[in-house]
């Protein structure tokens, strides 16, 4: 079995949850959801995850399961409790980002000036609260100059520079852990917390990533390759978590 780009992205998302232990993984989107569930089935067995609705799952189900399909529910997780968990810090969210900048400021609210947007998107949703309360990662399925920008139009998720400027209530629990894209994995493990190229996916060159990024990326001398899925991981994806191959539709390669 050879791994597709989507498979590599799922594993990269799973790796973002490595070491998290017994906290709630809140993935938004198919690939992050598969990543969290794959991590829980392999190297993070105590990770907590939901069905995307109000049920905390006791056993994994397919990402394409309809609401009518049976599932093992281990706890109740309505939105009110979800917010309690956000504020408790026992959570790691992986959100999308229409735009992201070098310090990890994220925008899902609107494009253009907020007062009269060129394109109204979702609104900030939970991003302001998530980012100042617990670890946050991002999944960006199309890594390009429109998404990786010098300055985002509306700061929804808070980046390192703005968290520091806002003071301890914003910065003390702030952490942007990882950014996974269709091309690469990025992090902020640099002296000034600016974005660093952590690895490139198999078949992707460093120059491709640099050309698709609208600001200067920190680059290590040698950029490793993102690890490929193991045979066990591919088997779990194909047999349990994503037999319908929903992941392929979300990743542009």
């Amino acid at each position: 079995m050879s791994a597709t780009r989507a498979d590599v992205c799922v594993v990269a998302c799973a790796e973002a949850f490595r070491g998290d232990g017994e906290i709630l993984a809140s993935p938004i989107g198919v690939v992050p959801t598969l990543g969290a569930r794959l991590a829980a089935l392999t190297f993070e067995p105590d990770l907590v995850y939901s069905d995307g609705d109000a049920a905390q799952l006791g056993a994994p189900i397919s990402v394409n399961a309809s609401p009518q399909e049976p599932r093992v529910i281990e706890a109740w997780l309505p939105f009110a409790r979800m917010l309690d968990i956000v504020w408790s810090g026992r959570r790691h969210v992986m959100m999308g980002a229409t735009q992201i900048d070098r310090f990890g400021n994220q925008n899902i609210a609107c494009i253009g000036p907020w007062a009269q947007p060129k394109s109204q998107l979702l609104g900030v949703r939970g991003a302001p609260g998530n980012t100042v309360n617990h670890p946050t990662s991002y999944w960006i399925p199309k890594h390009d100059l429109r998404s990786f920008v010098e300055k985002v139009d509306c700061v929804s998720g808070v980046g390192y520079d703005r968290a520091a400027a806002a003071g301890p209530s914003a910065s003390e629990f702030h952490e942007i852990r990882r950014v996974v894209t269709n091309l690469a994995v990025l992090d902020f493990e640099t002296p000034d917390n600016s974005m660093r190229l952590r690895s490139v996916h198999p078949g992707v060159s460093v120059s491709e990533v640099v050309a698709a990024t609208g600001f200067a990326l920190v680059q290590p001398d040698v950029v490793p390759e993102t690890r490929s899925p193991t045979g066990e991981e591919l088997a779990l994806l194909d047999s349990v978590l994503d037999p319908d191959k929903m992941r392929a539709a979300e990743v542009s390669s």
């Binding site: 939105f79 009110a80 917010l83 956000v86 504020w87 609210a109 907020w114 609104g123 900030v124 949703r125 939970g126 991003a127 302001p128 609260g129 980012t131 100042v132 309360n133 509306c154 700061v155 929804s156 998720g157 808070v158 703005r162 968290a163 400027a165 806002a166 003071g167 209530s169 914003a170 910065s171 629990f173 702030h174």
Partner: peptide
């Protein structure tokens, strides 16, 4: 425009008849 949690706190403050409730959410964001 509000963070989801801030909207909850705004309603909660009204429910408790206090003029505000404190939170981290929103700090540093737009």
């Amino acid at each position: 425009e509000l963070d989801e949690g801030m909207l909850q706190l705004g309603l909660r403050a009204a429910a408790w008849r206090v003029s505000f409730l404190p939170c981290r959410a929103g700090m540093g964001s737009a």
